[in-house]
Design a binder for these strands. Structure first.
Lengths: 151, 151
DNA sequence: TATTTTTGGTTGTGATTGCAACTATATTGA
DNA sequence: TCAATATAGTTGCAATCACAACCAAAAATA
């Protein structure tokens, strides 16, 4: 145990770190320049849209987007304040609440999609070959396979 | 132009985003739990150590670690306040300064390395095969190939 | 059932970030 | 040479984040 990583391992991680920062920066600045909310909003809204009818508990959202609970709680505050989601009392668990997307929330998703997707296509999709992307996805999902919900 | 990304492209990006968040979270919390400074400090110090003698201008560091200039400026403030780097006047450009790592800075690098590397090895290095990591690195460096210094 | 522990979520507070405005020096170009 | 513009870095401020402490309900345990 406690084996040191190979040089390639560290290089891979650094590349992951940098390329992520690079892409994220591009996405965020594109969204902002169009007057759209940041990517985190999109991520959460998208998860909510996928289960539109039933809604999601905060801990479920947290598990999906990997945001810790206090940040998520306040993110939901902001979404709610902007009318993009609703906090509903949760019948089976008095502690929690059930978050549902509103139609305004869906509208934001629709508006953000072209901007978001264009950046990703331009800076990522067209740079790599299709099979490279598929392989990348496979490999990274192995890493994430271990992921559990953040506290 | 303005082509929509394929489904795989978007999936790949999402996987990149989530796995990065996951790994970063692990690294940061490991560092913190050992009383060590955050990863950004490490990144900057490492770049400085690579050119120990000559030092680096802030814009050079910025180009390497992809931090924008105002955040970097304040990060250097913190490093300097903790005695890990020195800001030296820059002879050929009166606007800028030349940042150099101190021996205390090198010591921090040394202390952080085992903690940092252990997490990466455990959560990344051992999960993937060596050739998967090499390929991942290659592909991501293509993405980053376009990267220029952030404003 | 009563007590303890765990879980879901919120909130106070200080640190960090992002944006925009700013200073000062360098570079360009008329 | 002198004005205009670009670049390097800093700073004020508001928004966001991380940590810890907290509350309330649920689950586990006695």
């Amino acid at each position: 145990m406690n084996k040191a990583p190979t040089k390639e391992t560290m290089e891979g991680w650094i590349q992951l770190h940098r390329s992520h920062r690079y892409l994220l920066e591009r996405v965020e600045s594109a969204l902002k320049s169009e007057g759209l909310p940041p990517l985190d909003w999109y991520d959460v809204l998208l998860e909510l849209k996928r289960v539109k009818k039933t809604g999601l508990r905060q801990y479920e959202i947290s598990g999906k987007v990997l945001l810790n609970k206090h940040n998520l709680s306040r993110l939901i505050d902001r979404l709610e304040k902007n009318g993009l989601v609703q906090r509903n009392a949760c019948p089976e668990d008095g502690r929690g609440n059930l978050i549902k997307i509103t139609s305004a929330g869906e509208k934001v998703l629709k508006q953000a999609w072209p901007v978001y997707s264009h950046v990703i296509e331009e800076s990522f999709g067209t740079i790599l070959k299709s099979d490279e992307i598929v392989e990348l996805t496979r490999v990274l999902s192995l890493v994430l396979g271990r992921a559990e919900r953040l506290t």
